[in-house]
Amino acid sequence: MGFDLNALERAVTEHGRVARVVITGIQGSSPREIGASMLVWQGGQSGTIGGGALEFELAKSVLNVADKRLSRHALGPELGQCCGGAVQIVTEVFEQNTLPTSQNGVVVRAVDGSHTMPLRVQKLLKDARSGALIETHVCQGWFIEAVHKTTRALWVWGAGHVGRALVNTLAPLPEFATTWIDTSEDRFPNNVPEDVTKLPAQNPAALVKHAPKNAEHLILTYSHALDLELCHQLLTHDFQFAGLIGSKSKWARFQSRLAALGHSNAQISRITCPIGNPILGKHPQAIAIGVGSSLLKASQTVAQTQRNSA
């Protein structure tokens, strides 16, 4: 998850004094995981640490924190939540002149008033320079977080109803770096999510060569001809995943046409069509939920494999 320095800077620029609240430890059951965070400013907030009662109580007081605060909250006895666990939380208040900086992709700061960095924390910073994974935690009174990095390049081709539903569903998820392509500026909605890169292009297929070869692609343009050309270009370029919106009959036609363009059956089978979960229906939001679920399941499988091999 990590510390999203860009989101914090945007919030401070827009709202002035901003509090950031992060879960740094859990005992028992909790509505969110370690590293979950929210930003709070006068009259608003973004993000979530889960648990309406916990957020409500914190939002009333966090802007009054002088600088940093480490606190523990028993969710049942203290807040009446049914989770029954307890969470450790770090609260920090930022303004334009107190925005944090990172060292080797890590943000580290004392939360107990200490001015001397412990040897253990110094070693973690050294390990980070060598590419070691940094977990969000408090170590000997010092709070350590890796800077947030998007881990998955997602290219969405088409800004129609389904494209809009997909982008709005997936954009808030921190792991995706979303690039959104269509044929002209007026194809896009007025309000594109902040972290989404919008690319209007008269010939979208010409952009395929600029996509990372580990990118994931969702093809859902208004034109079957453009969909086909995108499939053709992606099979030539390579990708991590490619999903095409359409019926089984559309896919049967595309398979024949892609074969005629020189692609083998093994190559063509790498494209997933139809996308979504047919049980959920064909409403744009239903398709977005189905596609999002498939992408998240895939990432959980990869993460579990990496944990098992570590």
Rank of each mutant, 00 (worst) to 15 (best):
R164F: 04
L154S: 08
H148A: 15
P172G: 09
L173P: 00
N191C: 10
E185T: 06
W180M: 15
L170C: 05
P174Y: 03
W180S: 14
A153T: 15
F188A: 15
L166P: 05
L166E: 06
K198F: 12
T169P: 00
R187H: 07
L166W: 03
E185V: 08
I134T: 01
A146D: 01
K149W: 02
V147P: 04
K198N: 01
T151D: 05
W142Q: 12
T150V: 02
V162T: 15
A171T: 07
V192W: 01
P172W: 13
F188D: 10
I134E: 01
R129M: 10
A132G: 07
I144K: 00
G141A: 08
R164T: 13
V196G: 09
V156L: 14
T178Q: 01
G141W: 00
I134W: 10
H148T: 02
D195C: 09
G163V: 04
C139R: 11
N190V: 15
V192F: 06
E135V: 09
W155R: 00
P172I: 14
G131Y: 11
D182R: 03
H161F: 14
V196H: 04
E135Q: 07
R129H: 12
T179P: 08
I144Y: 00
S184P: 05
A146F: 01
V138F: 05
W157V: 13
E185P: 02
A171D: 00
A132L: 08
E135S: 07
A159D: 09
A159R: 07
T150Y: 00
P193H: 07
I134K: 04
P172K: 07
P193I: 11
E194Q: 13
P172H: 09
F143N: 07
S130H: 15
A146G: 04
L166K: 04
W142M: 04
V138C: 14
Q140N: 12
P189F: 15
E135H: 08
P189T: 10
K149S: 11
F176N: 01
N190C: 08
W180H: 10
R152P: 02
R152K: 10
G160R: 02
T169Y: 12
R129E: 14
H148G: 06
A165Q: 07
W155H: 03
A177C: 12
F143M: 08
R152H: 07
I144P: 02
V138A: 12
V196K: 04
S130D: 15
G131N: 11
T151S: 13
L173T: 04
I181A: 14
K149R: 10
C139Q: 13
L133I: 11
F143Y: 09
V156E: 02
C139S: 12
E135L: 11
W157G: 09
F188W: 09
T197N: 02
L173E: 02
A146N: 03
T197Y: 10
F176D: 02
R164D: 13
A132Y: 05
W155V: 15
H161M: 13
R187V: 06
N168I: 13
W157S: 11
N191S: 12
I134Q: 03
E135W: 01
R129T: 03
A159C: 11
T136C: 09
G131M: 14
T179A: 11
R152L: 14
A146Y: 01
H137Y: 00
P174C: 09
R129D: 05
P193A: 14
S184A: 15
L133E: 11
C139Y: 14
G158F: 03
